[in-house]
Design a protein around this nucleic acid. Sequence first.
DNA 1: ATGCCTGAAGGGTTCAGA
Length: 292
Amino acid sequence: MGRVRIATWNVNSVKQRLPRLLPWLDERRPDVVCLQETKLTDEAFTGLLGDELASRDYQVAVHGQGQWNGVAILSRAGLDDVVTGLADGPGFPQPEARAVAATCGGIRVWSVYVPNGRSPGSEHYQYKLAWLKALTDVVAAGPEAALVCGDMNIAPADADLFDPAAFVGQTHVTPPEREALARLEATGLHDVVRDHWPSEQVFTYWDYRAGMFHQNFGMRIDLVLASDPVAPRVKAAWVDRQARKGTGPSDHAPVIVDLDAAPDGDIGPMVPPPSASRAPKRPVKLPQAPKS
DNA sequence: ATGCCTGAAGGGTTCAGA
């Protein structure tokens, strides 16, 4: 098929994000959308926006739960062989709604929300590493044409942080997390945004607090990983920072990838990475969990 | 020294997020 636009977006509650999500779908017109942190049961998801998505010709694969987590795939490029969850994946302690897969336009598409990890060495951190191993096994056993999209909760390199010094000792940057991500990529996946912007500062997440977005103090933790047969088809790969601006945004911006053809002129501007933020004048102290 | 903002559940506050 021709051009296919694929996007991934941690919306931080699809219910709260509806006034941003629907106009964004109409403006960017993605063919396949991977959502994370939907925070709705499947029934609530369908009740809330089933009609809105159907009227835009999207088929929907949802895997949600109440309150936390939740992933989905919207597609008007086909939606076959839907699988929810990770086979033999770990729970915390029960399995959580963090992965859904479907075949869209001949590509096995995964929408994933990797566990946060909370603090290095914690039970949740071990869960995160085990979850990544289960994802790696399932992707390795799957079709060759694949896209793994979502919130990895890992900054692949220090270049993906506004201030690496601020993250020392935190999750998202520890060697075991980065090694787990590298093992996933070693199944034959390419980080297409980094490949297209090899030396640019590109972020996908900015904390809501303390004007972090305004200062461009962000992280790149939302990734599109394309398998060997798919990666050469990538014609554009960018972060839609417009979606992080304005009223009622998610704390994450969408990542948009076009396969095979350059985007048409009528689907909105290509947004280049912002100019590099200046290094903080003073060391930036990240919020810490309160001591128990 | 600090969870500084946001969302969810549920209840007058707490937990989770990265």
